[in-house]
């Protein structure tokens, strides 16, 4: 099946996602305006500053079209800032922070503290099998609550809380697989 993966390219590490998908051999398109979504089969929202990306989503009228495409079944994956944009509830955001509010999860921004608290940890994701995936957490948010129908894919427990979750065709990860050479999570998303 030929498919085109859209990558939200308003701000952040969209080029890293693009490079990963090209290595896998998938066609990609940078999405900055609503018309860029035409012909896109799935969408990745990269890491970056969620306040910046949210404002640009709002100013360039992308919130409604993405919500609509998602309702029609387009798979969506948010990494870090992208996961914040997906969450129904955002804690420690800025007032009126624009976001998609699509997944039934609550996310707390800067969940571990400031930059010197950023960390790496091995993550056991059941659907990926061995070996563990190296999770890079940069001023990362944490998923503090999820409705029962949300599937928890990775939980660091007392040390870190929920870091990956799936709800139907939506995937939220608070870390950055695009910063590693490991493409398993990208391949997993491509099967949604």
């Amino acid at each position: 099946m030929t498919q085109t993966v859209g990558i939200l390219s308003l701000q952040g590490d969209f080029a890293e996602h693009e490079a990963m998908l090209r290595r896998i051999g998938v066609a990609t398109r940078q999405v900055r305006l609503p018309e860029d979504l035409t012909g896109v089969d799935r969408l990745i929202m990269p890491g970056g500053e969620s306040t910046t990306i949210g404002k640009l989503l709002h100013r360039y009228d992308l919130l409604r079209p993405i919500q609509q495409r998602s309702a029609e079944g387009m798979p969506l994956w948010g990494t870090c800032a992208g996961a914040i944009l997906l969450a129904r509830t955002i804690q420690d955001g800025v007032p009126d922070q624009p976001a998609l509010h699509l997944m039934d999860i609550t996310v707390r921004r800067n969940g571990y503290g400031r930059q010197t608290d950023s960390f790496e940890a091995d993550l056991a994701l059941p659907m990926l099998g061995a070996p563990p995936l190296r999770g890079i957490f940069i001023r990362a948010p944490v998923i503090v609550a999820a409705d029962p129908h949300v599937e928890i894919l990775a939980d660091l427990g007392a040390h870190g809380g929920i870091v990956a979750a799936r709800q139907g065709t939506m995937l939220a990860t608070t870390f950055h697989p695009e910063l590693t050479p490991d493409d398993r999570l990208h391949r997993y998303f491509l099967e949604f």
């Binding site: 390219s9 308003l10 701000q11 952040g12 590490d13 969209f14 080029a15 890293e16 890491g47 970056g48 500053e49 910046t52 870090c80 800032a81 930059q115 010197t116 608290d117 950023s118 960390f119 790496e120 940890a121 890079i136 957490f137 940069i138 001023r139 040390h159 870190g160 950055h176 910063l179």
Partner: peptide
């Protein structure tokens, strides 16, 4: 868990890109 690795240091700059 390892804090303040080279990847987390260079990674924050990667998150600032396009900004």
């Amino acid at each position: 868990m390892e804090k303040s690795t080279w990847s987390t240091k260079t990674g924050l700059a990667q998150m600032l890109k396009g900004g």
